[in-house]
Amino acid sequence: MGVDEVGAGGSHAPALRVTAKETVAEGVVALELAHPDGARLPDWTPGAHIDLILPGGLTRQYSLCGDRWDAYRYRVGVLREPDGRGGSAYVHDRLRVGDSVGVGGPRNNFPLVPSDNYLFIAGGIGITPLMPMLHQADLLGAEWSLVYGGRHRGSMAFLGELARYGDRVHVVPEDERGRPDLDTWLGEPRDDVRVYCCGPPGLLDAVDTACATWPAPALRTERFTARQQESQVRDAPFEVVLARRGTTVTVTPGVSVLDAVRTAHVDVLSSCMRGTCGTCATGVLDGVVDHRDSLLTDDERAAGDCMFPCVSRSRGDRLVLDL
């Protein structure tokens, strides 16, 4: 056990500190993030991502690719996307060790399901969510292999770390070996293998097609492009209206909605303070929520009628809560 905040008194830290930044491949940096007070970070499982909330309100989602047994550090890998909207450019060009960065989640839309047999397929930066999965498959004693495609060796992150897995890992740089021959790698449909794929849309489409005759639960994919959130996150104060009481409180940056509501002497029962247990679920009557919990599905987030004020905030000037 290390330094830790104590109980419900310790509020959720909206920002983590960049403790290391390292170029791990051409156009790819790995960031290491830690709590400014050295406290434990929320737990996560392989396949999980966090939101990085960058200056100007850009939110970008990055898969956690570190070691979950280390409760004090997160690691993400960030590819510079030349035609992106500035999130990756900011991380590459501006973000420095020692800087603060807002973080939401972790949340997992791409969980590793139990199996005795896995086939992992990564394209480029799609290796990131698979890194902790490989470690886990190894721990569980499962049979597994990884096919990892990329433009050329220099552009492919984590090759050094992957070397320890020996011949389970098949590195396929396009300039040396062309694109992976998916039909050969996948072989005949099997119901005892789980296929995990992450990478560019072209690869995912190709794997979808190649797995068309596989049993439905076999294939699990994650599309980076589908989970870009383009709406802006605010870093200015906002108002929270407590509809049943007719009072309004102002929430300033760095203060949780829960704590702000409590200053109005409204007790909202809570427990984990990390958006994981669901105890502080609160009805939303109006306004657009900046969801940062680990509980709601994408559909439930879109419905916008429920939030977890221990971590979630507002995207607009005003939120109306059923309190």
Partner: peptide, 20 residues
């Protein structure tokens, strides 16, 4: 009182999954 943060349901990854 605000009993938030009590440990009656445990805490952490094994905290009572049915608490709500």
């Amino acid at each position: 009182r605000d009993p938030s943060g009590h440990l009656g349901f445990g805490f952490g990854i094994h905290q009572c999954v049915g608490q709500n």
